[in-house]
Design a binder for these strands. Structure first.
Lengths: 138, 138
DNA sequence: ATAAACCCTACTTTTTTTATAGACTTTACA
DNA sequence: TGTAAAGTCTATAAAAAAAGTAGGGTTTAT
């Protein structure tokens, strides 16, 4: 399951996507829309900004806005950013690889082989679905 | 990512699958093979037994054995048993459904719709891969 | 009778997630 | 030019989940 952080990130991105006509949107308005803690959401939006997905404007009249095209915000990108690896095991993660301590030889490990296949099929889905798909269904 | 519990379950199942010629296998031998805590593994094997995947024999000369054909032990079954939902959000889980409190209307939620698609594609993979696939690659 | 092995429940520790606090910086505008 | 509005940043606290441990109970071969 995704963490709440990631789920809220998707909600926020959806809200920002729906309000692209506005120059900026307040954290507060997003928090209110979904009943999320303002402060918690603040951290999430900051991470999305640092990742180049959102832009912001400080000071009075400021707020956040979507900097990327919705079709260019893949689900995989948001998940990796806030939740970490998509792979089901550390030993098959492309972005967060770590060997399994209990594993004598990765090359001989059937579980490793199968989980590489699972990872590839999951990535195929998560890299080809994007914020645009979410917005299309709203 | 899968929990260690689930990862160890797959290791144990693999070991038992490779030793189907023996009547029973000791917890201790599986734990030693992977350097896993005996007691922790005990709990895991017990769950696999209760789920009808493993059988056991008590007393001296006892141990665990695979009760199902490897091809009939889908990855999805083991993951659900030890880790819970496969779906990425509670509101799209088939086996562990819960509404999202922040969601006004599930029917109008684009995230919900997209995550249903993601779930179906993940299930398609995880229900069609099994212990047999792991054993084939060892 | 005894030792080997699984069964079961409860508990503790550790890690991760979720949430909060508060001081700081930037900006619009009266 | 002062003030209020808004994002920035770091640290910490609280809650929940995962990982691991303990120990007595039951069954069975010899």
């Amino acid at each position: 399951m995704l963490s709440k952080k990631t789920k809220y990130a998707f909600h926020a991105l959806t809200f920002l996507g729906k309000n692209r006509d506005q120059k900026t949107v307040l954290i507060q308005d997003i928090a209110a829309e979904y009943g999320i803690s303002h402060k918690f959401l603040e951290n999430i939006l900051l991470e999305l900004k640092k990742a180049g997905i959102l832009g912001s404007k400080k000071g009075k009249g400021g707020g956040y806005y979507l900097i990327k095209e919705p079709k260019d915000v893949a689900l995989s990108k948001v998940i990796r950013l806030l939740d970490g690896p998509i792979a089901l095991l550390p030993c098959v993660s492309l972005n967060y690889y770590e060997p399994c301590v209990e594993c004598q030889s990765e090359v001989k490990c059937g579980l490793n082989k199968v989980m590489i296949q699972v990872r590839d099929e999951m990535l195929n889905v998560l890299e080809n679905k994007s914020l645009a798909d979410i917005l299309d269904k709203e």
